[in-house]
């Protein structure tokens, strides 16, 4: 299960992470987010050595939601050394997420 983080943990979990971080900005009422949850859990174990996955609840983390200008749930943002390098707005298929992760590992 990807770790749920908020503003307080963001610096350590994302900005200072050695590994690239995939952040899932989700909302409680969002059905595609619920459907994507098991996919992200699976990817977390498949890519355990290469990537971290965290979840950010947009209903509670207003500041991060504003900061990253999230307007669609889910939004997946891939960070490398704390810098945004790619983003998927809206529900994504497993293959699309894998393509995103592979891209991060190439860079």
């Amino acid at each position: 299960m990807p770790l749920k983080i908020g503003k307080a943990e963001f610096a350590e979990a994302v900005e200072q992470s050695e590994l690239p971080v995939l952040a899932d900005f989700y909302s409680d009422s969002c059905i595609p987010c619920k459907r994507m949850s098991p996919v992200l859990s699976q990817l977390e174990s498949d890519y355990a050595e290469k990537l971290k996955i965290v979840k950010i609840n947009t209903n509670f983390e207003k500041e991060l939601t504003e900061q990253f200008q999230i307007q669609a749930a889910p939004t997946l943002i891939l960070f490398d050394k704390g810098k945004e390098i790619a983003r998927i707005r809206g529900a994504a298929k497993k293959e699309e997420i894998i393509a995103l992760i592979e891209q991060a590992n190439k860079e």
Partner: peptide, 13 residues
């Protein structure tokens, strides 16, 4: 980025 087909998903923004 403002256009949505799912009020339940994105309404809170």
């Amino acid at each position: 980025r403002g256009v949505s087909y799912c009020a339940l998903c994105d309404g809170a923004f």
